[in-house]
Simulated assay, not measured.
Amino acid sequence: MTAYKHIFTIIWFVLAFVGLVLTLFVSITFGAKDLTLETVWSAVFNYNEHLTTHQIVHNIRLPRVLGALVTGVAFAVAGAIMQGVTRNPMADTGILGVNAGAAFAVALSFAFLPYLPYSSLIVFAFIGATLSTIFIMLLGSVHSSGLNIMRLTIAGAVVAAILQSLSTGVAIYFNLSQDLAFWYAGGVGGVSWEHLKLLAPIVVTVLIGAILMGRSITFLSLGDESAINLGISIKRVKLFGIAMAVILACSAVAVVGSISFVGLVAPHIARWLVGIDYRKRIIMSALIGAILLVWADFASRMVNPPREFAIGAMVALIGVPFFLYIARKERREM
């Protein structure tokens, strides 16, 4: 039986990887101007700056699609980690208010430091996300029984709503509404190679760290008592886990805006496919998160070309019903 499980796990990983590659080529090939696969292949591997079609692929579509891929990985892995360390199946950096904290910090940066480079913007986003996470954790732990799943989710939703309102107020007062409106709805249209050069190493480094911590997160997700009996330092795993989730979320938010539900949907699908082992679940979550966000971006471009639909809204079409399903399922089991 175990041998069959391993075989099926390998098959799912291969299918997810092939699906991601196909998704990338479809997203790069089709758009306001459809290109052939031969042109895309040539532009990627044999770039000629004098050809217009190569410029479209290299300067516009490739950074955009890779931006969707990397941020999809970031949001999905952050969600998987949050679900593991908090043992909250409804955890997602957007739902728990982490994205909103990062977004509020970015809004303040836009208002007071409009020419701030992306490297500095990540620092501000990290500070905002960290402060909002600490505050939400404190709110979720005020009861004598300690941290509670439902209180944590409600606290995250409340704090996210407050921070989004404050961000809107900042945008209106400083005449940033037009600049921030689409950014808050989420979009990868502005992703450049400069963003990717900084974002990709951060995401890859944290992803490797998360995989290495996967065994500890798996034991922690089974309960504190089980983790202690197996020699796991609960506080250290939670601290490092939440820190990694915050880094991933704020790095992605600083580039594409506050996109929710990727970190909710991808880890659950990953669990259905590869089980509860977080070493496998984190990798599968990364693949599914990348596929989901690349398809969401592709759909946002193709709904009403040449105009674009907000990518955050596209993800929410899947994420909201998924969230309600998980919430209903958890309520039944309580």
Rank of each mutant, 00 (worst) to 15 (best):
M1H: 09
T9K: 15
I11H: 02
G19S: 08
L20R: 12
L20T: 12
L24T: 11
G31E: 06
G31M: 11
D34L: 05
T39Q: 14
V40D: 01
V40C: 12
S42V: 05
F45H: 13
N46M: 08
V57F: 10
V57S: 07
N59V: 10
N59H: 14
L62I: 11
P63H: 13
V70N: 00
A74C: 08
F75T: 07
A78M: 01
G79R: 01
A80H: 03
Q83N: 06
P89A: 14
D92N: 10
D92K: 00
T93M: 12
T93I: 07
T93Y: 04
G94E: 00
V98M: 03
V98D: 00
G101L: 01
G101I: 02
A111T: 03
F112H: 09
Y115N: 15
L121Y: 04
A125G: 10
L131P: 02
G140L: 01
S144K: 15
S145I: 06
G146T: 06
N148R: 11
I149L: 12
L152Y: 06
I154S: 00
G156K: 00
Q164A: 14
S165Y: 08
G169K: 07
V170Q: 03
F174V: 04
N175W: 02
L176R: 03
S177H: 05
S177Q: 12
F182P: 00
G186D: 08
G187F: 04
G187H: 02
V188T: 14
V188A: 14
G189R: 10
G189E: 13
G190L: 13
V191L: 08
V191R: 02
H195K: 05
K197I: 09
A200L: 07
A200T: 15
P201K: 11
T205W: 04
I208L: 15
G209H: 09
A210Y: 00
A210I: 06
I211E: 04
S216P: 00
I217E: 07
G223Y: 05
S226T: 14
I228K: 15
N229G: 15
I232N: 07
S233I: 12
I234A: 13
R236F: 12
G241F: 05
G241W: 01
I247G: 00
S251I: 03
A254D: 03
V256S: 09
F261M: 10
F261Y: 14
H268V: 05
A270H: 03
L273D: 04
I276R: 04
D277G: 04
D277Y: 06
K280E: 06
I282W: 04
I282F: 14
I283V: 14
M284R: 02
M284F: 08
S285A: 13
A286H: 06
L287E: 01
L287G: 01
I288Y: 08
L293V: 11
L293M: 14
D297E: 09
F298C: 10
A299N: 03
A299G: 12
M302G: 03
M302L: 10
V303K: 02
N304H: 07
A310R: 09
V315P: 01
I318S: 09
I318P: 05
I318G: 08
P321E: 10
F322Q: 02
L324F: 14
Y325C: 09
Y325T: 14
I326S: 08
I326M: 15
R328V: 07
E330Q: 13
E333G: 04
M334Q: 08
